[in-house]
Design a binder for these strands. Structure first.
Lengths: 206, 206
DNA sequence: GTTGCGATGTATCGGTCCGATACATCGCGG
DNA sequence: CCGCGATGTATCGGACCGATACATCGCAAC
């Protein structure tokens, strides 16, 4: 999941580790805590080893690049490669029901602006299904097993059930918007001409 | 966190692995998916090695115990020890702010019936503080950095903010109840020394 | 009966992610 | 020039998950 988030962010612009962490925290702040360094750096290495990222010298505002590599200063700037973009697209395409747990769905949703409408719908509906299942299971417990559980546990379940119902309603609104071609809320997607990524239409399982 | 949940459940009655998993799923279903076997069995071993659990023979409804150990049949029944109960109490006592993330708080809450009122208040207030912080940080992002983020990301943050506000209200209600000595909802219950109703009716097979 | 099969149950393995910790460098005030 | 907090990269052990393997039980079909 983290791999997906990093690849997604680096498509906006190259960044070094710390920056990546901050941007990620801003973008995903509503669904998870800031990513740990113990996760970040190993993941960056793994992605680089896989050819999805490359190290680059740091671009100074003046213009030219400073010498490549770590040597000059601690910071290492990562840039996404063509394979990386492809990998990102693949990860979306492969997204199946198991991806739609709280964290997985949230991360995908956060990058909806880089996803085509059909995929957005697929993910929203998959998530809705998952939340509905959870909701039913909670109703079940609250109905059938209520007297086996203590008051606090019941209260927790009720709160969870409430959150499920609310999320389903939210999702239905989003789905309706999506079908009618509207964006969430008011904002118009000026968002500087989203470059017509060559790799977009890639809705296929091999 | 899982260690805490297992120790908490085994105070109700001894259980074997599968059963533990099912009870845990029923009790914590509102906050997390069913626990994985890859987590459960190693954790049980760890707790046993630490002296918090012991293996026992399986108690058949007839009365006597079947021979101890794994030999007769696959199932291994675990029973909590005195050290285990002590450990459970320690884990509650040590609960600090870092424990109050979504999962940690939920698990603690689920075992409030085994906790004294002062601790319940401490945990509820700690959680409220944590959620308030998250809420402020989301408001911050939505206010200051709004134009840097795309419509979908903003929508996600709004939904997260909404959930925070709702949870804070929920927590305040619980805190008020706690202070006035009421239980959540209606149910009455006396804690300490096990509910008079004998543990859980162990689901049956002669 | 015995054979076959789905449900029950225990167990391991590789991988992801986290929390704590260490350490090097930069920017800046005294 | 020194010291010190911000910034930044990095490692390590541990918790937890998902997939998988395998053994046994209960039961029904033959």
């Amino acid at each position: 999941m983290l791999e997906f988030a990093i690849l997604g962010l680096l498509q906006e612009s190259p960044m070094h580790g710390y920056e990546l962490r901050k941007e990620l925290a801003a973008k995903l702040g509503s669904i998870r805590a800031a990513i740990s360094f113990g996760t970040l750096y190993p993941t960056l290495r793994r992605l680089q080893a896989a050819g999805y990222l490359t190290e680059t010298g740091e671009a100074v505002p003046g213009g030219a690049e400073v010498p490549p590599l770590t040597t000059r200063r601690g910071r290492v700037v990562y840039k996404i490669t063509a394979e990386g973009k492809e990998r990102f697209a693949d990860l979306i395409a492969q997204a199946g029901p198991e991806t739609y747990d709280d964290a997985g769905f949230g991360v995908h949703f956060a990058f909806f602006a880089r996803t085509d409408q059909a995929t957005r719908l697929r993910i929203l509906e998959g998530r809705r299904r998952k939340v509905e299942e959870r909701r039913e299971s909670l109703r079940d417990v609250l109905g059938r097993a209520a007297e086996r559980l203590d008051a606090y546990t019941l209260e927790l379940q009720r709160h969870g059930l409430d959150a499920c119902e609310r999320e389903v309603r939210w999702l239905e609104e989003l789905i309706a918007n999506e079908r009618s071609g509207r964006l969430p809320a008011d904002r118009q997607e000026t968002e500087e001409d989203r470059p017509p990524e060559p790799g977009y239409p890639r809705e296929e399982r091999p």
